[in-house]
């Protein structure tokens, strides 16, 4: 009797466990399913709209053929300028956190605030840069877009630099200082090179993130139907063109939006996968 009851109990517990763990596998399949669906759809619709014209012609008015050349150029330029502004500031800030911050509460506060900025809604960064740059200068511009992207890149670089530098062994610092190097030489000649892979990974991940950002560009870089090489003017960029074209009623604009989505997705995923591979091969 007792043996029977305990066997039934054990069977029930085992069954419940198998159901729960089965559900966890189902949850994982569920997430992976969406990944393949989204990437698959982007590839399918994007590839069928992919033509050489995409890289040689400007964004067209509805009904005529065209490409995304001005948008691709604008995106590239703004990402490059944004990275050029954000990276030095981010690396220096991360360096201060890891190397100089003696007052611990201040460093902890900055780390905390930085983590908040990391997840802060990017549309708010767009509004902020609108107030800071667009309103002051009186017009939308590629520079404003680049500043918005720099502000999104910044916290990612600060965090990865800080984390990587703190992994550098203390003995390296002691060795450099013992040779008589002043602190800034110790950091630039010994610590940064030792942490190079980690810092590069952080920068690449940040570049991947800002390359697909749309919200902060909507009211900073705006958009531009025509070719501009000058970032002082409003600039076309792929994410905002996708947004505008996808919400339009025109079939050929939809096709271009898909092609743009494919280009962005391939670029972003290649950069972020490359960055992760970089750190994995080292570790």
């Amino acid at each position: 009797m007792v043996a029977n009851a305990s066997r039934a109990l054990r069977r029930r517990r085992a069954l419940r466990g198998r159901i729960a763990l089965g559900l966890s596998a189902a949850a994982t399949l569920f997430a992976v399913f969406w990944l393949f669906w989204i990437l698959g759809a982007t590839l399918y619709y994007g590839a069928s709209a992919l033509t050489p014209r995409l890289f040689t012609q400007m964004t067209p008015p509805p009904g005529s053929p065209g490409g995304l050349l001005n948008a691709l150029y604008g995106s590239l330029l703004m990402v490059v300028i944004g990275t050029a502004i954000g990276t030095p500031v981010g690396v220096m800030a991360g360096t201060w956190l890891a190397e100089y911050a003696r007052r611990r509460w201040l460093a902890e506060t900055i780390r905390f605030i930085n983590d908040i900025l990391l997840s802060a809604p990017s549309i708010i960064i767009g509004l902020f840069v609108y107030a800071l740059v667009v309103r002051q200068s009186g017009h939308f511009s590629g520079y404003a877009g680049a500043v918005a992207l720099a502000l999104i890149l910044l916290p990612v670089v600060v965090r990865t630099t800080d984390e990587t530098l703190r992994l550098v062994p203390m003995t390296l610092r002691e060795a450099a200082l013992a040779l008589g190097a002043p602190r800034w030489r110790m950091i630039t000649l010994v610590i940064w090179p030792a942490a190079r892979t980690g810092i590069t990974t952080g920068i690449l991940l940040a570049v991947a993130r800002i390359s697909g950002e749309t919200a902060p560009l909507l009211f900073t870089a705006l958009n531009n139907q025509f070719w501009t090489a000058n970032p002082a003017h409003p600039m076309a960029n792929v994410p905002v063109v996708i947004f505008q074209f996808a919400l339009s009623p025109y079939e050929d604009w939809h096709a271009l939006a898909w092609a743009g989505a494919l280009v962005i997705a391939v670029f972003v995923l290649c950069v972020s996968v490359g960055a992760r591979r970089l750190i994995r091969t080292r570790a």
């Binding site: 994982t28 997430a31 992976v32 969406w34 990944l35 669906w37 989204i38 990437l39 759809a41 982007t42 619709y45 991947a208 390359s211 697909g212 950002e213 749309t214 919200a215 994410p239 996708i242 947004f243 996808a246 919400l247 939809h254 939006a257 898909w258 989505a261 962005i264 997705a265 972003v268 995923l269 972020s272 996968v273 992760r276």
Partner: peptide, 24 residues
């Protein structure tokens, strides 16, 4: 591989979620 796939999902720009959402 599964962890990498989930990470990949985090890397997809939100504009692509939006387009896929609207059209698919």
């Amino acid at each position: 591989p599964v962890a990498a796939a989930i990470e990949l999902l985090a890397g997809i720009p939100s504009i692509i979620f939006g387009m896929w959402g609207l059209f698919v």
